[in-house]
Design a protein around this nucleic acid. Structure first.
Lengths: 329, 329
DNA sequence: AAGCCGACTGCACAAACGTGCAAAATGGGC
DNA sequence: GCCCATTTTGCACGTTTGTGCAGTCGGCTT
C-alpha cells in the first residue's frame, strides 16, 4: 500500500529539495544515530553525498549544536568577570601555549557560532572591521531574520589599498548570513584633514548613515591595540604613519574601537586623531543596548581594560588566558 | 607569566571535575572544530577518553543538538496533521520498508530526545508504560529540573510476572533523567473484580495518587492496539485472557491508553473492562494541558484515530508512514 | 547546435572515531 | 594499612567519516 509515496509530489517542488534532504539526513543522523552509510541507502545516494549534506546542514544553521553549563557550575571566570565588570563574558577555552594567531582563529570561530544569539529580526546591527571581525565573518552560521540591517561602523579606505573591497566583503558575509540589508560606509578610515570630515558629516547621505548608527540595537567589534607586539589590522594596513603614531603615543592612547582611540581610563577627549577618524563617538556607541566585543591575546589586555573603563562593552567574547590575565590586572 | 595556571586550583575542586572536562571538551570539539586527538593533548589524556567524554556530554544533555526547519518549509505532513486534527505533530522520518520493530525503536529514540521540550520544573508528569515507553526510557536526555514529580498513570502488575519491577525501572529512568521524584502506583494493571478496585480507590494512599494524576501538567503515553497483528505489551504480557479479549471485541474496542479502552469514536461508556482497569479516566487525563502521545507502525492507525477522536492528544510523535496513512484514513 | 561553465556525484584513500579488553587507579570497608 | 570492588585509562583494532579528484549532468551563451 502507498508504494513510494515519499516523493509523489517531489517533482512539483521547485524550492531547495536540497534543504529538504539535508533536514531529513540531519534527523536520521542526529536524532536517530544512523550511520551515514545507512542514511545513504534511505536517501538513495552515496555516503559521501550524505557527508556533504550534513556539512551543509550544520553550516547553514539547520542543525544547531549548543552547550549548556549545568547552572550550578558556570565557568568560574565568567562569574568573576561579571562580578568585577558587570558584563556577560563568554570564555573560549584555548591552551596557554597557543600562538596569538591560533587564539584569534579559535575565538573568532566560537564567536561566529554564538553570534546568532545576539542577532534578531527588526534590528540594526553595527559592524566594525579588522582581523578579528574578518576571521569571524568567514564562519558565521546563517540565521533567518526579517527587516534586519547591517551598518558599517567606520570607514575602511586608505591611500594605498582598496580597503573598501575588503570591508565590503566582510559586511556582505554578515548580510548574507542573516538575510539582512547592508549599509556600507564608503569613506577612508581616517580623513587627512578634520575639516573634510566635518564637511562630509554634513552630507545628507552621511547623515542618514549616522542616524542608523545612532539607532543601533547591537554593535559588534574587536579591539585595536596600537602598541602591542602583534599590531592589529589598522596598524599594519598603512592607515597610520609615523607622525600619527607619535601623536597617539603622546596622547596616552591604549587602544581603539572602530578606529576611535581612547586612554587607559576610557577617556577620549582631546585625542587629535579622533577628529579625523570615522568611527562612531563613544556616546553614540553606548546607545546600543547590546555591545559585543570579541578579543583574543594577552597583548590586548591593556586595550581591553580601557574599553571596559569606557563602558563600551556589554558582552565579551574572549579567550581563557586573556580573561584570566584581565582579572589579575 | 602565570605558568600552567589552568589547574592551579584543580585539586581544591571536589565536584565533578568530570563534567567540567566534558564541557571543555565539548567546547573544543563542537565550537572550535578541533579533532579529538588535539583535544586529548590539551586535556592531557588519551584520544579514547576524549571520545568517551564527548559521549558523556551528549548523553547527559551538556551538548544539545537541535534541528530547525526553516520556517518557510515546515514538514508538509505536520502542517496537514495540524490542519486536520488541531494538534502539533513531530514526524519522525523512517523508510517505508522498515520493520515495525525498527520503527518503534527509531520513533522512541527521537521522542526521547525531544521530550526535554515538554518537561520543566515544578510540574507533575504522568507516565504510562508499554513497549514504546520502555524503549523511550532507555534514551532520555537528562535535563535538570526542580520540584518535578513523575507519577505512574496505571498499574503494571499481573498474576504471573512482576510487572511492578518492570514499570518501576521505567519510572526510575524518567525520574533520574529529570531529577524528579517518582510516585509509583503499586497495583495490578487490571483488578479481577471491579469491587476490589472501587475499594482500593477509597484508600487514602490511592487517593493521594489519584489527586496527583488529576493535577498533571504533562502526560506521556503510547497507544495499545489489542487487535493488531503486532500486539502491544499489554496484550502479550498475560494481562488479559481469552474472555477479556472477547469482551473487548464485543464492546467494539479499538485501542487503549494507559489500559483504559475506547471505541473508534473515542467513547468509553459501557466498556466493562474499564471497570477493572487502573488507568485514569479520560476526563481526568484531558485535564492535563499537554498530552504527548508516541506511536509507531501502521498497525496502530485505527487505535490512534480513536485516541484522536477521544481528544486525548495534544502533541503527537509518530513515524512518517503512520502519519501519512493516518491522513489518508 | 555546439560549447562552456558551474554544480553535483561517486570513488578511493587517508584521517578521525568508537569500543572491547586488560592494566591501572580510585575509594570505601574492615 | 591493606584489600577488594568498582571505575577509569590507554591501546589496538575495525568502523565510520572527510575530501581531492575525475567524470557527469543541466543550464546558458554564442
Amino acid at each position: 500500500m502507498t508504494p513510494r509515496g515519499t516523493d509523489a509530489s517531489a517533482g512539483a517542488d521547485p524550492v531547495s529539495g536540497r534543504t529538504r534532504e539535508a533536514l531529513r539526513a540531519a534527523h536520521l543522523y542526529y536524532m536517530q544515530d544512523l550511520t551515514m552509510e545507512a542514511i545513504a541507502q534511505e536517501l538513495r545516494t552515496s555516503r559521501s553525498s550524505v557527508s556533504r549534506l550534513l556539512s551543509h546542514a550544520r553550516a547553514s544553521g539547520l542543525v544547531e549544536i549548543s552547550i549548556h553549563s549545568p547552572l550550578d557550575l558556570p565557568s568560574r571566570i565568567e562569574q568573576d568577570v561579571l562580578a568585577r565588570f558587570g558584563i556577560a563574558a563568554h570564555v573560549v577555552p584555548v591552551p596557554d601555549h597557543a600562538t596569538d594567531v591560533d587564539r584569534l582563529d579559535r575565538v573568532a570561530l566560537s564567536a561566529a557560532r554564538i553570534l546568532g544569539r545576539f542577532v534578531d529580526s527588526n534590528q540594526t546591527i553595527g559592524v566594525a572591521w579588522g582581523s578579528t571581525m574578518s576571521a569571524m565573518s568567514r564562519h558565521l552560521v546563517p540565521k533567518a531574520t526579517h527587516n534586519t540591517e547591517i551598518v558599517q561602523l567606520n570607514g575602511a579606505g586608505n591611500g594605498r589599498t582598496t580597503g573598501i573591497l575588503y570591508a565590503s566583503e566582510l559586511l556582505r558575509r554578515f548580510g548574507d548570513a542573516f538575510g539582512a540589508r547592508v549599509q556600507q560606509f564608503p569613506v577612508p578610515a581616517f580623513f587627512d584633514d578634520p575639516a573634510t570630515r566635518r564637511a562630509f558629516w554634513r552630507e545628507r547621505s552621511t547623515r542618514r548613515l549616522l542616524e542608523l548608527q545612532a539607532g543601533m540595537d547591537v554593535a559588534i567589534f574587536g579591539i585595536g591595540s596600537p602598541f602591542a607586539e602583534v599590531p592589529s589590522h589598522v596598524y599594519q594596513g598603512g592607515y597610520l604613519d609615523r607622525t600619527d603614531y607619535d601623536a597617539l603615543s603622546r596622547d596616552g592612547v591604549v587602544g581603539d574601537v572602530a578606529t576611535v582611540f581612547y586612554r587607559a581610563d576610557g577617556s577620549t577627549d582631546g585625542i587629535a586623531m579622533n577628529e579625523r577618524a570615522t568611527g562612531p563617538d563613544f556616546a553614540v556607541l553606548r546607545r546600543a543596548p547590546r555591545r559585543v566585543c570579541v578579543v583574543s591575546g594577552r597583548a590586548k589586555i591593556a586595550s581591553l581594560a580601557g574599553a571596559l573603563a569606557a563602558g563600551l562593552i556589554t558582552d565579551l567574547i574572549v579567550d581563557e588566558g586573556t580573561a584570566r590575565a584581565l582579572l589579575e590586572s
